[in-house]
Design a protein around this nucleic acid. Structure first.
Lengths: 360, 360
DNA sequence: CTGTTAGCGCGTTCAA
DNA sequence: TTGAACGCGCTAACAG
């Protein structure tokens, strides 16, 4: 009927199936309050002292009546900041990540940011995709906990680009802020506990660690802390590629024979998992291989403290995940505000939680 | 050219500490390619056939050179759609939620949406806050899995507002799409399994269920399936308020005495947890109270199939979480595209996973 | 104290 | 085939 373009007024109250009653804009509010957009904007931005009580009341009423909500997008477009923080997580199925998340959210909440959470689900090209997407949405900063990010991906981030902070792992050739566990200390804590408990054959089990700095550091720390030990305890590293079932089976078989030999030798054997996913896989295998009483045959310790640790009774090194997440946001915030361009790093201490598994 | 306004070229490579080299805009690209913004826009929107090969090449080059990324915010502002989907999750610490998330992400990926994940961490005013925030960011739709959302909160959502779909639980007085588990069937599956296994004293353990529809439904289904049973099996419901430690202790104590009495009576007792968090709490308690061999004293089954279920050897009813999340997005998508205003519901079937716990 | 004006980065007519 | 002009919802100078 109408020859015009967008001048339809069919959004009248036609009952229930009304076609999306356009959300009120700042202009609508201005009209409703009988004033200009500027005053509304001022009101919204808390410049209260500058408004006459009368106008202020009218504005309040109008906003209420129209159920008006300022459009963050438009706001961001103008201001240049949209209060969005990108959060790239490699694997949300890992309880560690969720805990980090809580800290991040808490901090965002406190500092007025809105976290845009991206879950790469361990897929490396997902990471790339999301990183681009975050860029596209003009997030003010990114917190990255990823596996395959190359320096090239964050190129625009590190130097002249979006402020970034890394969690738990660094990226080769990229100098960004970094926050995580004090891996060396944590591993030492675990190793020394096991040694003190009389275990003299310790196997450190870790996922392929070439790519991920924290894994590398933990493994190195393990070797070192075993070497500096006076005793004749044996230390060995086993690699578990969790996403390759065939490889896992082979590795577990190798582990089994190692444990068997140790037993035959009369040694007391302990497994030290580098993180929760590894620990879970080990526990499942041990249970399947040795029965419900597996705990009495081989000790298991791990970095990370997942919810089932207590149930399985394994000794763990708990990370202050909440603090880590919180600090990450703080770092980012400072950078966004334009502070300290020198790359910083925060390493938090882990806490040893001794459970039945290593009391044998 | 110089008479213009924003013709500053101070973004030259001044070294490392360059002050945030403003991201290229569409105008920059146009200038670089020696053309107008319109052509760039066309190129971006895939209207390729309308561009001369020459221009097209120049544009491509310019974009490459400037590392240009279209600003989604501005784009959304104009178009009215920003491809953002709000996702409100009550508790990410619950593995169920994370699994749902995977399905949602997968679907978003496929349909071209960007999920904006909000984690309420079981706090009811967080939910409110986030719901407002989502509105503020003009998400095109919301997927809600929450505990305290009232009809009033989603008022603007249900009828004339943002399209919404509920996961796992409905909201009183709100007719939105809904997707979740077929609770009645799932509970029946579990109950019948337990009865068939010879358990004749079954305790259904659930969190306070007045507010959350799925809990209500599960409890009702439990009572019903116990009643329709011919045998003389006993059925009882216990409530566990997980966030109130005092109440939990009391409830667990009551549970203990119940189990003891059952044993004294010579009955075979089984616990049926309404979800994973409850199951975990129960398992932890049983282990503490009965020792590592608790499994042999009392059977434990649960709805939900967390990663530790296999480790603890408890029988579970696994939900097709991925499908649920995926379907939720599909529903939302259809609605966003302006389809079917009648509220639909999708109930997925659970799958019984029998483990040692109920084979006693 | 208040309103007017000019864009933010982009898509979309409408002419050329 | 291409480009100029206008406006999305909002904020930030400038006047009044």
């Amino acid at each position: 009927m109408a020859a015009g373009d967008a001048d339809r007024d069919d959004h009248a109250e036609t009952g229930a199936a009304a076609t999306a009653p356009r959300r009120a804009t700042i202009s609508d509010v201005a009209r409703e309050a009988g004033t200009g957009k500027t005053s509304i904007s001022r009101y919204l931005n808390g410049e209260l002292g500058v408004l006459s009580p009368d106008l202020r009341a009218r504005i309040e009423a109008a906003i209420e009546r129209l159920d008006y909500r300022p459009n963050q997008m438009a706001r961001g477009l103008k201001r240049g900041r949209n209060r969005l923080l990108g959060l790239l997580i490699a694997d949300l199925a890992n309880p560690y990540s969720v805990e980090i998340l809580q800290g991040v959210e808490e901090a965002c909440h406190a500092l007025g940011y809105m976290p845009l959470i991206c879950h790469a689900a361990n897929e490396i090209d997902m990471e790339r995709r999301y990183l681009q997407l975050l860029t596209t949405y003009r997030v003010e900063g990114v917190i990255v906990n990823a596996l395959g990010v190359r320096e090239s991906m964050l190129k625009p981030v590190g130097s002249g680009g979006i402020p970034a902070v890394l969690i738990d792992r660094t990226v080769d050739g990229l100098d960004a802020d970094m926050v995580g566990l004090d891996n060396a200390a944590a591993v030492r804590l675990g190793t020394e506990h096991l040694l003190a408990r009389g275990y003299d054959d310790i196997v450190f089990v870790v996922q392929p660690f070439e790519q991920v700095s924290s894994r590398r550091e933990r493994e190195a720390a393990f070797r070192e802390s075993m070497q500096t030990t006076k005793g004749a305890a044996r230390g060995l590293t086993h690699v578990l590629e969790l996403h390759d079932e065939v490889a896992v089976q082979a590795a577990l078989a190798a582990l089994d024979t190692h444990v068997a030999h140790a037993h035959a030798r009369g040694a007391r054997c302990a497994l030290f998992a580098a993180n929760a996913p590894v620990a879970l896989r080990l526990a499942l295998h041990l249970k399947a291989a040795l029965g419900a009483q597996w705990q009495q045959r081989v000790a298991l310790a791990a970095i990370d403290d997942p919810e089932w640790a207590e149930l399985a009774g394994i000794t763990t090194i708990r990370q202050p995940t909440r603090d880590i997440g919180y600090r990450a946001v703080e770092f980012l915030h400072e950078r966004i505000e334009g502070a300290a361009p020198k790359a910083r790093a925060a390493a938090f201490e882990g806490e040893l939680v001794v459970r039945a598994s290593t009391l044998g």
